[in-house]
């Protein structure tokens, strides 16, 4: 897989902008919300499709950013240069697997009413 460096650079900067927005939102809402934090609040929020969408965008930004960043720093090393192709494919596979797995996890959140029935 050979993506031009210009594209990788652009992807990394764009995803960094995504991170500024979504990571900030995530830290405020998920980690340091006003008042106390418990599972019922998380599940209530995660029931909204909008929050699922926001979390999927956070996931995508973080993965694109981390994968392009890792690719760039690893291929900086001259001796690794000849494995660029392999590393490119590895990055894309890593992204795809992690994105699908993360998305499934985010989509798994259900409304409390639906989950209550599952508790014996």
């Amino acid at each position: 897989m050979q993506i031009s460096h210009t594209r990788i650079f652009q992807l990394q900067r764009l995803s960094a902008i995504g991170l500024v927005i979504f990571l900030t939102t995530h830290m405020v809402v998920a980690h340091y919300p006003p008042g106390h934090l418990d599972f019922s609040r998380v599940i209530e929020r995660m029931a909204y499709p909008l929050w699922k969408g926001i979390d999927i965008l956070l996931l995508a930004s973080a993965l694109v950013h981390a994968v392009t960043g890792m690719y760039m720093v690893i291929t900086d090393v001259e001796k690794v240069g000849r494995y660029r192709q392999v590393l490119g494919w590895a990055s894309i596979i890593l992204f795809t697997v992690a994105f699908i797995y993360g998305t499934i996890t985010i989509l798994a959140f259900r409304l409390p009413a639906e989950t209550v029935n599952l508790i014996p």
């Binding site: 460096h5 990788i8 291929t75 900086d76 240069g81 660029r84």
Partner: peptide, 9 residues
């Protein structure tokens, strides 16, 4: 300068 060994490194 925008290739593999250029400014984006």
């Amino acid at each position: 300068i925008s290739g593999n060994d250029g400014v984006f490194r």
